[in-house]
Design a protein around this nucleic acid. Sequence first.
RNA 1: GCUCCCUUCGUCUAGAGGCCUAGGACACGGCCCUCUCAAGGCUGUAACACCGGUUCGAAUCCGGUAGGGAGCGCCA
Length: 467
Amino acid sequence: MSLPAVTRFAPSPTGSLHLGNARTAFFSYLWARKSGGRFILRIEDTDVERSERRFLDALMQDLRWLGLDWDEGPEVGGPSAPYAQSERGEWYAGLFRRLESAGLAYPCFCTPEELELSRKLQRIAGKPPRYAGTCRNLTADERSARIASGTRPTLRFAVPKDELIEFADLVHGAQKFASNDIGDFIIRREDGTSAFFFCNAVDDSVMGVTHVLRGDDHLTNTPRQLMLLDALGMRRPGYGHVGLLVGADGAPLSKRHGSTSVQDFRDRGFVPDALLNHLFHLGHTADVEGWLAPRDMPAHFRPEHLGRASARFEETQLVHWQKEALQRMSTADIGAWLGPHHATDSDAAGFAELVRHNVVLPADAAPWLAVLRGELPPLGAEERRIVSAAGPEFFAAAARALDETRADFAALAKSLRERTGRKGAELYMPLRVALTGRTHGPELAPLLRMMPMETARRRLETHARHP
RNA sequence: GCUCCCUUCGUCUAGAGGCCUAGGACACGGCCCUCUCAAGGCUGUAACACCGGUUCGAAUCCGGUAGGGAGCGCCA
C-alpha cells in the first residue's frame, strides 16, 4: 500500500451535485480510504453571486447519502479550518501582498469591456486570446494615479517568460507546458476575492493535499497553478486528471442530458450502493469483477487504473447495478424503499417480497399494486389469445376451484389440473392473464394470497361468461 | 487560431512487441431451467479510427491524418 493520501473534493455551491463531480469525489474518497489517509471537503464559494447556502446543504446531503464522509471540512472541522474559501480571504490577502511586493503580481486596471475587445481582436488576428500585458509595465506613478481616480484594479500574476513547466500527472503521465503560451491571469478580482486558480492551488497546498483528483478540463490549468505555487515557495500537490463523464452524445454530462444530478437519481429511487457500484466501474477498473459492498471498495480501488479517456454514462448499466443492489436488500429495506408505492393497508412485507424481482424503481411497483386491488387494463392481443384458447369452461372451473380451495393456489392448480387435464403453461398462463392482465409478473401463489378473494373470483368469472 | 488531452465490441473496459484466430462485464439474441418475468447455467453476434514507418513480429513503439474534447474568463 502506498503512503497515506490526503485527497479532497472542492465543489462550488452553485448548483446541484452532478454525477461527474460525484465520481471524482468518490475516487478521491476511495484513494484516501485505501491508503489510510484523509478526505477533505472544501467549499469553493468565492463567487458570492452564484454561491448559495441551499446548494451547500444539498451538496453535503448528497455526499452523505452516497456515504462519502469527509474527515475535514464543514460541520466536522479540522486543522486547516476554515474550509469555506469565503472565510479565508485574509490569508489570501497576505499571499497577494507577498506576490505583489516581490513583483510577481501586478494590479490591472483594464475593464472587462476592454479585455473582451482585446480578446476578440486577437481571435480575429488568428492569435490566442491572451491578456496583452497592458498593465504589466505601468510605473508606480501611473498606478497610484489610477487608484486615485477611483479605479479598483484586479491583481494579475506575472507569468515568467521562457519557462518550461513540467509535472507528472497522476493519470496522464509526464506533462510539459511552455510559460510563453500562458498569459498573465487574474488571481484577485476587483472586489478583492480570490479567483479560482489562486485559492484552489494555495488551499490544496496548505491543507496538505497530496493527490488532487479532478476532471480533465483542468489539465491545461495545472501549469498556471504550479507557477503560482512555485512563486510562493509552496509545496506542489500531485495532480491527476480523470476523463470526463459524458452523455450519450459524447458531450460532457450536463443538464440537457436529463437527470444527471445525484438528487435526481435519488428521487427516482436509485439506491446509493447501485450508484457507487456503477461509478466504481466508470473509467476505473478494479482488481475484481462484480458487485462490491461500498465498505469493500477502497481495498479494490486502483488509482493506476483510472481512465484517461472520457467515459460514457449509460443508464442501462446503472440499472444493472440497481438490480444487484435490490437483490441484496432485506425485505424491510425493500418495503421502505418502495415507500408510498407499497401496500400500506395489507401485508407490506409480503408485497415487498412479491414485487422485488419485478421492479427496478419504486414506481414500477404501482402496476402490481393495481393488480392486487385496482382495475386491470384492457387485455392485449397476446393476452386475449391465451384467454380464448383456454375457453370459458376453464375459467368457470377455475372460479369454482377458487372457492373450494379458498384461494390456496397450489390446491387450486392441482384441482384444475385434475379437472381439465391441463398442465404447465396451458394451465398457468390463462390464470395469470385472467388474474393480472399480463403474461409476466410475480409468482402467482403469493399474488393470489394477497389478492382479495372477491377480486380474484370476479376476474375469473369475467372470462367464464365472455368467451 | 494557438496549446493540451483522448480514440479497443452498442456501453464500461483488459491489454504496457510475440501468451491476441484480442479477454471480461453490461446490453442484445439463442438454448436449458421454469406458469411468466427475474435469478442461475450454457451459448452467439460484436471492437484494436485511418495511413505510413520501425521490427522476424504491433492493439501495443514512432510519425502523420481524421474525429471527439478541454483550456486560452474578474466561472470553477
